[in-house]
Design a binder for these strands. Structure first.
Lengths: 161, 161
DNA sequence: GCCGCCTACGTTATAAAATAACATCATGCC
DNA sequence: GGCATGATGTTATTTTATAACGTAGGCGGC
């Protein structure tokens, strides 16, 4: 797992700022409305490099606003962010994570550490190629491939070998 | 998608009988207890080649028994069946499907048709190899890879081209 | 056989994740 | 300003999953 996902050895504020800047740019370019609410939800998704549940985000949002928000508020914002490719949903965790490279082609591949909870996006063409090959052999038309690999990241292997 | 998953052109009763026979054999071999309840849940999972939700199975079970069963009853049976590799859970659907080749090595790969709902297990070594390669490059230790490809099966492409 | 142990099953309650239906508000366009 | 469209608020409900605790049933040791 890249060092950047270890919260102790990188400037995470920079990750967040970066993500927001890119989101602003992408949405402006597309004419999509990154409203204050959506932007705030995006920021909360980026709280860490661990996938976050909708209700965790909801709690943070409620605290920030000083009043309790409704689940739908968050789900709608997340839906927008996923559509725009700014956020991915991790199916096996029912959780959301900020996209490392919005704007680029995505096939949604992740390495998820079961020890620290960090998830790293790996848009690797070889996995995608393998999937496309098998699908083609079987006449299956690929729409949305999901790859979520559970295991242990380098850092966590070192901690408990 | 193989013809065998098209419910109109294969003897599905045979699929079910086969699955139960293999389950009996595997559990006997391992000393695992495939109780009447677990066997019945396995049968209900095999109702079709479509992944089924726990609550759908629960309903069927209640109907068969003539009294309403509790969710936990089904979840516990499913947990056992998944542990034994007789059933797989499709993370992206919150649903369960019978394993086509229990006893063999599994890496949990599926082609899921969004039109007809059928899911086919494809334990393809090339996908697995690609995942292992990338993981090795990043020092990530793979535990449980999940591959769920959404799209359209051959049959459904023909129906609405 | 009988006892004790471990595992499976039953029951009730509750948590967690997601959506439905409908009302209201904001924003951009003319 | 007025209107259309899309975003947000509000309330209720559905779907999925687990917790906590008690009972029963099979299996091995003796």
């Amino acid at each position: 797992m890249p060092a950047a996902t270890n919260p102790t050895n990188h400037d995470h504020a920079h990750c967040i700022a970066d993500a927001l800047t890119r989101a602003d740019a992408l949405c402006a370019e597309r004419g999509a409305r990154l409203t204050a609410l959506r932007r705030q939800v995006l920021e909360l998704v980026w709280t860490s490099h661990r996938p976050r549940g909708a209700y965790a985000i909801l709690e943070d949002l409620s605290q920030r606003e000083g009043k309790s928000a409704a689940p739908l508020t968050v789900y709608r914002a997340l839906e927008f962010l996923v559509e725009q490719g700014l956020v991915h949903r991790l199916e096996s965790l029912n959780a959301y994570i900020g996209c490392a490279a919005p704007g680029a082609v995505h096939s949604g591949q992740f390495l998820v550490c079961e020890a620290c909870g960090n998830a790293v996006e790996i848009d690797d063409p070889r996995i995608r190629a393998a999937i496309d090959t098998i699908a083609a052999e079987r006449g299956f038309q690929v729409d949305r491939p999901t790859v979520e690999v559970r295991g242990r990241c380098t850092d966590c292997q070192e901690k408990t070998p």
